[in-house]
Each structure stands twice: as C-alpha cells, then as structure tokens.
C-alpha cells in the first residue's frame, strides 16, 4: 500500500498515525507540508528515520524545493517528481491519503 501524507509532523498527527498504521513493507509518500517530515534536524526526524527500518519513505521534490528545504533532506528518503508520484500510485495495489 502507498500512504500519502500532506501534513507537517510538527503541527498535526497525520505522519504519526500513518507510521503507526502502515504495515511493514508499505511505502509512504510525503507531499505538501509533509515534506518537512523528510528533513533532518527536526523534532520529528528521529521517528521518521526509525520508521525507515520497515517502510520506504519518499518525498515530493517540487514541494521540498518550493519550501526551501531541498538541501535538508534526510538520508534514506527517496525523492520523486510528479511523474514518480504517478509511478508509485500505479505500482502499489492501493493507496490512502492521510488528510
């Protein structure tokens, strides 16, 4: 399953809930304000880093660039563009948005 999250982990609980309810081997795509969860050095970085043991973490590069955080991407996060976003949806049997 592909989990799509669009909320900052420092403001809302969508990233936490997603990490709690994503089964092992699932993919998580961080878009919009959720790209802050893909950056290093934040209060949320450690839990996202830890989640990489069980989940594949992706982040939407255009959203990181727009927010000035492209240079702060955490190691292990896979960057994709909108075309890559489409591929992720197509590759996974189902998807879910954590609004």
């Amino acid at each position: 399953m592909l989990h799509i999250v669009n909320k900052s982990p420092l403001e809302r609980n969508a990233v936490d809930s997603c990490l709690r309810l994503a089964t092992k081997g699932s993919a998580v795509l961080l878009i919009e304000d959720a790209v802050y969860a893909a950056t290093k050095g934040t209060a949320a970085s450690a839990k996202v880093q830890a989640a990489m043991a069980n989940l594949k973490i992706y982040a939407l590069a255009p959203d990181m660039e727009a927010r000035g955080v492209a240079g702060r991407v955490m190691e292990g996060v896979n960057l994709v563009d909108y075309s890559g976003f489409v591929d992720l949806v197509a590759e996974h049997k189902n998807c879910q948005s954590w609004l």
Partner: peptide, 12 residues
C-alpha cells in the same frame, strides 16, 4: 497537487 498529478499521469 491533484492537477499536477493528473497532468503527469496523462503525460505518461
């Protein structure tokens, strides 16, 4: 985001 996704999907 929805528009960019739709556009990218169609382009592919």
């Amino acid at each position: 985001s929805a528009y960019q996704f739709a556009k990218a999907a169609i382009e592919k």
